[in-house]
Design a protein around this nucleic acid. Structure first.
Length: 855
RNA sequence: GCGAAAGUGGCGGAAUUGGCAGACGCGCCAGACUUAGGAUCUGGUACCGAAAGGUGUGGGGGUUCGAGUCCCCCCUUUCGCACCA
């Protein structure tokens, strides 16, 4: 052991040693309890950034902690290596995506290894390799068989910048998730995965994970699925056989409906208007709305002005036979509910606004329930029929008025009864709708898994047989960036024969969304080289579900909802048993840095020039200090503000630990290191007992905080223990066996507990303390706290007078309440504050505090 | 506009969940060692006050012996959602 701490030497030494020993390799047949620690796999952009460092430092700390506590830990890594940037590089610089990607992976793998993250590298996977994407295609075929994958033409989200389609999740808020460009609508024939079939489960199974997932992520998922209970109602149209179906959550307001409003894209519209003199006008109007919607940049768009047009058609209210006009309007969306609504202006804000603009009647049918002064009787505000005086829509529940036989009922009862009535009379019934749409996975891209479909002039759409998988990407393609898949211009790829009839046929040239790759990758880690299946269900069952998943919350409704969906599909295919793939989720905060010349903290990025290169930090301060700082600087879920001064503090701490070990090490030879069992309690000096107390308190605290992933306070606890060691002033040479024992106990505990944060230096110090074979050689080196030793010998109890701190008294921990009270009252400082006052009450909180109330 | 979360020293953040506010670190101040210090070590550091003491967890009210923590109103910030019938 050198006198001084030289990170680069010991980090290299231990990285080599770990690799040689296979220290982090997880084996299926290991009898110890398993723990699956997982971090979101990176996109191989070429360079690790601080967000990665944070993500992997958190995961690695947990993986180390669990190993040191005797778990068989699976901690893998891989590459989300399909996707846009590789193609962008190809267009810009003429490099083939495959070469670019492989180079980036090689470089980033080196960076991760220099950071010393404890991965089982044997399990590394990369999405762009045929042995991986073969299974994307295999899953696609399974879904195709089960009608979970299908093709249809629809208006899709199109990013004009990247010239490709985006899923709904990827264009949330109307902007491209990757580049922020406003998304436009485009009619395209696309492949979809039927995630809607699992909509109900995606909501209801949240109960299985709600203890382990952040509430904000679950909320976003719930909102995204958008489960809504209500009813369908079919409105007959006068002089037509077709009925217009409407979805409403407020069937109790149906007597207030004064129009039926259809979406411009409503499929029934052309048929209903056939022969109508208004047909051309309506068609033109609908086209205008659709056109406006296509170019609409939704980001800044405040609710657009409502536009509508009367179709001249009349619908019949099935509850009272009343006729009402049928309109077309831009505020009704085709892809939600039934694409048509009943307009109830008195009780819906949007309908109200619409009715005001086009002077449709507004009829109140719900009266607020006002509790009388005694709260015993409900006063109903009488309804004003056909009134235009109403200023705002009353959207609350209440009591029905002007509603025929239903008048007098409460909304809640009426909603249920009216829906049942509709079902009974065969014009509707209770219904549940979801906001979530099927997942569009077609991408007009080269660098993705080809969709394994062949189009035959005779047989139509034919799935590629399983035995022919993978459908390989060609080695080369022309990259022009024109918005068509580059695969289209590769004849060797496109031209094939029909698997069914053998005649010439063409391949599907769209590739899959890269979120397909990441939906199931962590199952592949459990059995990464399986050539017969995506993974062996028996092996996967040993490791999954993931015990702790760590990553950014930017994927709350993309990756994290897709992977839940995929898990359910795999369950139905018999591949997995659990309903949910991830037990606990931690969403880490962003890493920010000051933008030069401003006072703003923003996420590190190349364009802002505020990025920090992890390699430079490792070079300057070492991987151990870099990792420690990142974990110490803020709680994992908070934003982390970068500070170079902070990382220096981390080095300083590691150096002080190092020096402490160096100084004390000599005294730890066999002669002096007497086992605790041979030492009687009274051999320990006061200082030694105090040190042991701190040691055992720290062990308890750190162990506890690890379970909660409170990593920043954990580091603080280790710093406190070091400070306590510093205060333990017994010189190593002069130490009694008991003193030496106490010091050794403290130092060894400190070194072991340091390993999750700064593993290299911890290993080196552990070895210097005379242990061979590394920290993971022996199982369960993690220290165990002895509550007896952690207990305080005396307590300092604060004494308040009227709630203000006035004094402190030192007492034994087991003092009786009565004695504590007596001692507190006898204290001279306390006396000076109660003198001349009457003591009204004395509150004694055992072990905690005394409060004297005086008048 | 709607919804959620959060506001604690100069800064990042602690506070056993109603019981000593500010752990730990950064920064800063003073001192020691030093040819030197952007190294290291020691001490100090919420605010006002010479002290006694007083005041302090975004602001205002409340509950309580006692509130950073619970309740009500307001302000600010951040993040989600944006015609979802």
């Amino acid at each position: 052991m050198d006198e001084k701490y030289f990170p680069e030497q010991i980090e290299e030494k231990w990285q080599l040693r770990w690799a040689q020993d296979g220290a982090f390799e997880a084996n299926d047949d290991d009898p110890r309890p398993k723990f699956y620690a997982l971090e979101m796999l990176p996109y191989p952009s070429g360079f690790l950034h601080m967000g990665h460092v944070r993500n992997y430092s958190i995961g690695d700390a947990l993986a180390w902690y669990k190993r040191l506590r005797g778990f068989n830990v699976l901690h893998p890594i891989g590459w989300d290596s399909f996707g846009q940037p590789a193609e962008q590089a190809a267009i810009k610089r003429g490099i083939q995506p495959r070469d670019w990607t492989e180079e980036n992976i090689a470089h980033m793998r080196g960076q991760l290894q220099r950071l010393g993250v404890s991965y089982d590298w044997r399990r590394e996977i990369a999405a762009h390799r045929p042995d991986y994407y073969k299974w994307d295609q295999w899953f696609f075929l399974k879904m195709f068989e089960r009608d979970l994958a299908y093709k249809r033409t629809s208006a899709v989200n199109w990013c004009p910048n990247e010239e490709t389609v985006l899923s709904n999740e990827q264009s949330s808020g109307g902007i491209c998730w990757r580049c922020g460009t406003p998304v436009v609508k485009k009619e395209l024939e696309q492949w979809f995965l039927r995630i809607t079939r699992y909509a109900e489960e995606l909501v209801s199974d949240i109960k299985e994970i709600e203890d382990g997932w952040p509430e904000k992520v679950l909320k976003r998922q719930r909102d995204w699925v958008g489960r809504s209970e209500g009813a369908y109602i079919d409105f007959a149209v006068k002089d037509h056989d077709d009925k217009v179906r409407v979805f409403t959550t407020r069937i109790d307001t149906i007597f207030g409906a004064t129009a039926i409003v259809l979406s411009a894209e409503h499929p029934l519209l052309p048929k209903l208007l056939a022969g109508s003199s208004l047909k051309d006008d309506v068609v033109r109007f609908a086209a205008k709305i659709e056109g406006a919607r296509a170019i609409k940049a939704q980001d800044a768009a405040e609710a657009e002005e409502k536009l509508g047009m009367n179709t001249g058609l009349l619908a019949v209210n099935p509850f009272n036979g009343e006729l009402m006009p049928v309109w077309v309007a831009n505020y009704v969306l085709m892809d939600y509910g039934a694409g048509a609504v009943m307009s109830v202006p008195a009780h819906d804000e949007r309908d109200f606004e619409f009715a005001c603009k086009y002077t449709l009647p507004i009829r109140q049918v719900i009266a607020p329930i006002v509790h009388g002064p005694q709260g015993e009787s409900a006063d109903i505000v009488p309804g004003t029929a056909q009134s235009m005086d109403v200023k705002i829509a009353f959207t609350e529940y209440g009591e029905l008025v002007n509603s025929g036989d239903w008048s007098g009922k409460l909304s809640h009862h009426a909603m249920r009864e009216m829906a049942d009535y509709a079902a009974e009379k065969n014009f509707g019934g209770p219904a549940v709708t979801y906001r979530i749409r099927d997942w569009g996975i077609s991408r007009q891209r080269f660098w993705g898994a080809p969709i394994p479909i062949v189009y035959c002039g005779v047989c139509g759409t034919v799935p590629v047989p399983e035995k022919d998988l993978p459908v390989r990407l060609p080695d080369n393609a022309e990259f022009t960036g024109t918005g068509e898949s580059p695969l289209k211009s590769v004849p060797e790829f496109v031209n094939t024969t029909c698997p069914k009839c053998g005649r010439p046929a063409t391949r599907e040239t769209d590739t899959m969304d890269t979120f397909v790759d990441s939906s199931w990758y962590f199952f592949r880690y459990t059995d990464p080289r399986n050539e017969a299946m995506p993974f062996d269900p028996a092996i996967a069952a040993k490791w999954t579900p993931v015990d702790q998943y760590i990553g950014g919350d930017s994927h709350a409704v993309m990756h994290l909802i897709y992977t839940r969906f995929w898990n359910k599909v795999m369950r139905d295919l018999g591949l997995v048993k659990a309903n949910e793939p991830v037990k606990r989720l931690l969403t880490q905060g962003m890493v920010t840095n000051r933008v030069e010349g401003t006072n703003e903290w923003k996420a590190m990025s190349k364009s802002l020039g505020n990025g920090v290169d992890p390699d430079e930090m490792i070079k300057a301060y070492g991987a151990d200090a870099t990792r420690m700082f990142v974990l110490f600087a803020a709680p994992p879920e908070n934003e982390l503000r970068w500070s170079e001064a902070g990382i220096e503090g981390a080095v300083r701490f590691l150096r002080r630990v190092w020096t402490m070990v160096y100084r004390r090490r000599e005294a730890f030879d066999d002669r002096r290191a007497t086992p605790a069992a041979k030492l009687s309690a009274d051999e320990f000096s006061d200082a030694a007992r105090a040190l042991r107390r701190k040691t055992h308190q720290t062990i308890a605290r750190v162990t506890d905080d690890f379970e909660k992933l409170d990593l920043n306070t954990n580091v603080a606890a280790l710093m406190e223990l070091l400070n306590a060691l510093g205060e333990f002033s017994v010189e190593p040479a002069a130490a009694s066996p008991a003193d030496a024992f106490a010091a050794r106990e403290a130092i060894e505990a400190l070194v072991v507990m340091l390993a999750p944060f700064s593993p290299h230096v911890a290993e080196e110090m552990w070895e210097s303390l005379g242990h061979e074979g590394g920290l993971l050689k022996t199982t369960e080196v993690w220290p165990v706290a002895d509550p007896e030793l952690a207990r305080k010998e005396e307590l300092e109890i604060p004494v308040q007078v009227n709630g203000k701190l006035r004094s402190r008294v030192i007492v034994a921990p087991d003092i009786t309440e009565a004695d504590l009270r007596t001692i507190a009252l006898a204290d001279s400082k306390v006396q000076s504050f109660i003198d001349g006052h009457e003591v009204v009450k004395v509150i004694v909180v055992p072990q905690r505090l005394v409060n004297v109330v005086v008048k």
